[in-house]
């Protein structure tokens, strides 16, 4: 029984990792290369989910994701199904929650790029899009990897936000962290132990890889 929440957590982490570049690349690019007055405000806005309590974020997302909320309403018109208490719903929450964890490493690796490379690209007549695709991306692989692993590991451990918007539905929104919490509360300590014992080495493994990548990036 305890494998279903673990698989669901892995699925959520994987989907978050695959989708987050779409959300994270534009702001990371802008924060690294852009120069306008809105930059520090955008920076603060994106970092916000990292510092506000998960309960505050969860409450805000709950209000947004109900059928009468802005996001939940739009989702229902588009897909015909509810966003709240669904896998798509916790995925949406997870994307918002992980945005700062994806943007910061990306931004750092963009900023570390050799400016001469970008200048050469411009001199050779590459459009900004081509420069991004053919110069910036290939030179930021380790930053992208670091950001992906951080997001994956962080999604595995997500708790507070999902507790607020998930509804703990087995197989759909009952991820490992929630299942462990419920197992402990119901004093099913064996289940909690099995799930925790699986989660800890996995997270450890990803952090070791992350450190290896960061070291390589520095040298």
């Amino acid at each position: 029984m305890f494998s279903i929440p673990l698989i669901l957590s892995a699925k959520l982490a994987f989907c978050t990792m695959m989708l987050i570049p779409i959300l994270a690349f534009p702001p990371a690019y802008f924060l690294a290369f852009g120069s306008c007055r809105g930059k520090s405000i955008l920076d603060a806005l994106i970092t916000l989910p990292m510092v506000i309590p998960p309960t505050v974020l969860g409450f805000g997302l709950l209000m947004l994701m109900t059928p009468s909320g802005a996001v939940g309403g739009a989702w229902q018109t588009m897909t015909g199904s509810r966003l709240i208490f669904s896998f798509s719903g916790i995925l949406f929450a997870s994307l918002i929650f992980n945005l700062p964890f994806a943007v910061q490493p990306l931004r750092a690796s963009f900023e570390k790029l050799d400016k001469r490379l970008l200048e050469s690209a411009a001199v050779l007549g590459l459009s900004p899009w081509q420069t991004f695709y053919r110069v910036i991306l290939p030179n930021s692989i380790s930053g992208i990897a670091a950001s992906s692993i951080l997001v994956f590991a962080h999604s595995l451990g997500e708790f507070g936000v999902i507790l607020m918007v998930g509804g703990s539905i087995p197989g759909r929104t009952q991820v490992a962290s929630i299942a462990i919490y419920e197992a402990v509360e119901a004093m099913r300590f064996d289940d909690a132990l099995y799930m925790s014992a699986t989660l800890v080495p996995v997270c450890f493994f990803f952090l070791v890889i992350l450190n290896a990548i960061n070291r390589r990036q520095q040298s």
């Binding site: 709950l62 994701m65 109900t66 009468s68 909320g69 507790l163 509804g167 703990s168 539905i169 509360e185």
Partner: peptide, 22 residues
């Protein structure tokens, strides 16, 4: 079963309906 959204206490169950989530 497939329709049930589980609150951690009876007050969270109430809150799910009050916010329009359920």
């Amino acid at each position: 079963k497939s329709k049930l959204a589980v609150g951690q206490s009876i007050s969270q169950a109430f809150q799910y309906v009050a916010t329009g989530a359920a």
